[in-house]
Amino acid sequence: MIFGVDVASILLGGLSAGMVLFIVSVGLSVTMGLMGFVNLAHGAFAMLGGYVIVLAMNRLGVGFVPALMLGFVVTAAVSFVFERLLYKRLYRAGELDQVLFTIGLVFVFIAGLTIIVGPETQPFTPPAALRGQVDLGFTQYRAYSIFLIVVGIVIVVGLWLGFERTRLGAQIRATVDNRRMAESLGINVDRLFSITFAFGSGMAALGGGLGAEFLGLDPQYALKYLVFFLIVVSVGGLGTVTGVFYASILIGVLDFVLKLYLPKGGTIFIFALTILLLLWRPQGLFKRTET
């Protein structure tokens, strides 16, 4: 049965997964586009945020929304410090050193969380209002997934407006297109990068918390899903919000369908598709400028 109601539920499930992918990956795309920094530790920031959110809810009894805000703020602050103290020194270094550095950071995060919190998976239960089913008129679906889709749409629209309609967004776009020209026009690229890096990590934290329901949350999170975040970013194109959004939805829905119909080794098609897409459009599917 692939028709009728099934199509709707598959689409909804895939969309909610895609939204989480988008929320986590969008910061990675923008920071990589700005500085060309190969940041493999982005998943680690998502994991850190997820832990802050889930632990605040489970152990401190903080509400869902305040916990999300707390996760965003803490992760953004931590990543800001990391950026100013460490990342900054490697902007002019080669990709190899950047990869080595960020892999090292991932190990530190994994080991740190294992030591402080423990190796087990952290349980996540959505707040009571988001449990159960919700009636959409044409079908019944899980309330939490619908909530994810709504949140995702709000964030996409917000980011798109910020990217296209604000001064900061214009500066980011200019820098992604041509960093040296932007610098010579007086844009403070360093400051711009600090802000977007902290904000992007905060978004990743939100994604880590929101997605904990179906991605799970354990210290291996940072490595387990890193490949997916990287696939989304490279397929979508660096430095784009809309590109990452379409790529997230594509990969999210595809993964959902494959898990449903080909539970054994369905991901092989995602890797194959990624290879084909990248060979066809090495700069990403939705990259605006051809440079």
Partner: peptide, 19 residues
């Protein structure tokens, strides 16, 4: 776990100070 922590720190230090 300590090995992973130590390795991570070592990689960070190598990348930052000993290219």
């Amino acid at each position: 776990t300590a090995w992973q922590l130590g390795l991570g720190l070592l990689l960070v230090v190598i990348a930052l100070f000993a290219r």
